[in-house]
Amino acid sequence: MHIEIADLRRRFGRVTALDGVDLTVSGGMFGLLGTNGAGKTTLMRILAGVLPATSGRVVVGGNDLSTRGGRVAVQRRLGYLPQELGLYPDLTPTEFLDYVGLLKGLDDRAARRGQVGDLLDLVGLSDVAGRKLKGFSGGMRRRVGIAQALLGDPTLLIVDEPTVGLDPEERIRFRTLLSSLAGARTVLLSTHIVEDVAQTCRQTAVLAAGRVLFTGQVTDLTARAEGVTWEIVTAGSPPTDGVVVSAIARTDGTHYRVVSPRPPSPDAIPVSPSLEEGYVALMRSATPLPVG
């Protein structure tokens, strides 16, 4: 589903959460990167029709979100996993999905039951389908969350920081599941973890302080660090120039990877960057360098 956002603004009292966002998203999996407080959740909420914009234009699949009709039309084709999905602890996954399905307008009982069963299979929760949600771990709750989002076979899937708080194995499972869902759908994934985007998305945007710093191919974001990423091996003190992205101690000394416009030391060798380094280079070029 095609998403067109133009000059979108959202204020909360004196806080400006979104400050003139322009963004285009077409099919596939799209990663929205940004630190905490960048405005990701606010943007996702507006796209999900949960929150109205202060000003600007948002068109999703041809529907203008500023109208009630447009919002409902989008919500009929939407799956949304909020950042904080509270569940009803007294329900089982089956009951919870049945309820959400009804609210999504899946009126046919047999069809709804069928979908609920299939989705519980898909997210690997069939074994615990009859257990109350109150005992579920973070990863299991997230899987219930994605299952409810998939009810009604949405063409747009919006997932807000779905991998936070998951252990590494769960995180990898979860994002693999998300990519597998992206085939015919548009999947909008927000995260502050660069690796999540690196492993799943071709298109990405970087949000900082309510503004879009970058939008385009993931490879283009990586390329931002081309020529400014260095490796230094030293037994001495860490480099002071630039941003140290990684430091790995080995027998021959500590291997530092540094993003810096100048070589951080005479024996630094240029290396080809990762997405994380592209992200760091972007963030660094966007904020003025400290004096001195």
């Binding site: 909420r45 999900a48 409902v72 919500q75 959400v100």
Partner: peptide, 17 residues
């Protein structure tokens, strides 16, 4: 309502719920 945000994203009016 522990699932407020989810409710607001669904096509059924929260007011109706």
């Amino acid at each position: 309502e522990t699932c407020r945000e989810l409710h607001l994203s669904l096509p059924t009016l929260h007011l109706a719920t």
